[in-house]
């Protein structure tokens, strides 16, 4: 985990890694890594968010959480705490 973080800092200069949580609506990103572990990670992956897949952030819910994304041709809503585990580029 630490090494990954280190790598991504090196690649992107002084910027910290970007996760799906920080991605602005209207932007398409590619998933590079899914953090976390156990059942949460499994659940996220089984909904189609796997490494290398393109995710389009459609909108944020009226109260600021969750976010709605388009992935593999369908609309998925996920909480920001889960979106934070998904590293993107």
């Amino acid at each position: 985990m630490n090494r990954m973080r280190h790598n991504s800092i090196n690649l992107k200069g002084d910027r910290t890694m970007q996760t799906l949580k920080e991605t602005k609506p209207g932007i398409t990103v590619r998933v590079t890594k899914i953090g976390g572990g156990g059942p949460i990670k499994r659940r996220i992956m089984e909904m189609g968010i796997t490494k290398g897949v393109d995710v389009f952030v459609r909108k944020v819910a009226p109260l600021g959480d969750p976010v709605e994304v388009t992935v593999r041709g369908y609309e998925l809503s996920l909480r920001k705490s889960d979106a934070q585990l998904i590293e993107v580029e």
Binding site: I40, E75, L76, S77, L78, D82
Partner: peptide, 11 residues
């Protein structure tokens, strides 16, 4: 703590 939550928004 609340567990993870993903929900499909069907058409």
């Amino acid at each position: 703590v609340p567990s993870s939550f993903t929900l499909e928004l069907p058409p």
